[in-house]
Amino acid sequence: MLRIIHYVNQFFGQIGGEDKAGVPPMVIDGPVGPGLLIDRILKDRGRVVATVLCGDNYFSEEMEAASQALLDMIGARPCDLFIAGPAFNAGRYGIACGEMTRRVQDELGLPAVTGMFPENPGVDLYRKGIYIIETGNTAVGMPKAMPKMIDLGIRLFGREPIGGPEAEGYLPRGIKQNVLASKSAAERAVDLLLKKMKGVPFRTEILLPDLDVVSPAPAVADLKGATIALVTEGGLVPRENPDNIESARASRWAKYRVADLAAHGAEEFQSVHRGFDTVFVNEDPNRLLPVDVMEDLEREGVFKSLFPDFLVTTGVATTMDNARRIGREMARELALANVSGVLLTST
């Protein structure tokens, strides 16, 4: 009977939502939330003996201490397999799942698996060293993802050979393996080229990294003569949310007057962002968008002028395509207004 320890965040651990994202590491006997599904899938082949849990903010802010505490909890219990998440497209949760999977595998020597949506920032950080099963972008994908994670985990435990990413459903780790091909490399290369020229779908054998490295824009030459714009992905909008900025998976952005925010603050503005606990920001929006300090610095002549509008969208589970489009649209607006530099705040 396989003994599994399962890692979840405060949400899947049923402690609470963003208001509980600060809870420190803890261990619970038996399965919680998605752990119940693990038990159902395994039937008499195994069970979740313990669930380790940590709030997403706590983990991100205290990564070393949190992961060490969790590692101690896991190491103190008999365990055959470690499963983290899946985290879907939740960024902080993905990083926590990746870090825990890596440390449990490398430091405790246990087989370990996690699951994430390919765009989760945890994928890029951890894919090289661990097995990350590809999932959908929301928890709707749980019933599909969990059996794959368990299957791979059982085979890692049994030290069975693991096939390539496509066959096994994990995200490519950038590892090259020798296989015997029926055609020579030259023939395969020409085949690929012909397909590309015909516009037929083709797949390269060597995945090139898609780093999207942007060369840095030149620095602001003279801060004293500069116009600085404030932008946030923290979802700060007038209370009635007149432009219907989404709370998550944003497709829209808007601009509002800095002067209005400075004059009315929390009375008129609130964050609709659903990816973090907005209590502190809704108490004092300066904690997200520093208009008080920026107005002081403008008056003191540190820079010439504060752009009169601030630009806002919501950055939580936003698709890459929408994020890039929103960024391009905002950039166009700011370039037209001859803005010299942008201070972008993100939660």
Binding site: S215, A217, P218, I326, G327, A331, L334, A335
Partner: peptide, 8 residues
């Protein structure tokens, strides 16, 4: 995207 457009 800002940096790509030349705005630091």
């Amino acid at each position: 995207e800002f940096e790509r457009a030349g705005i630091p």
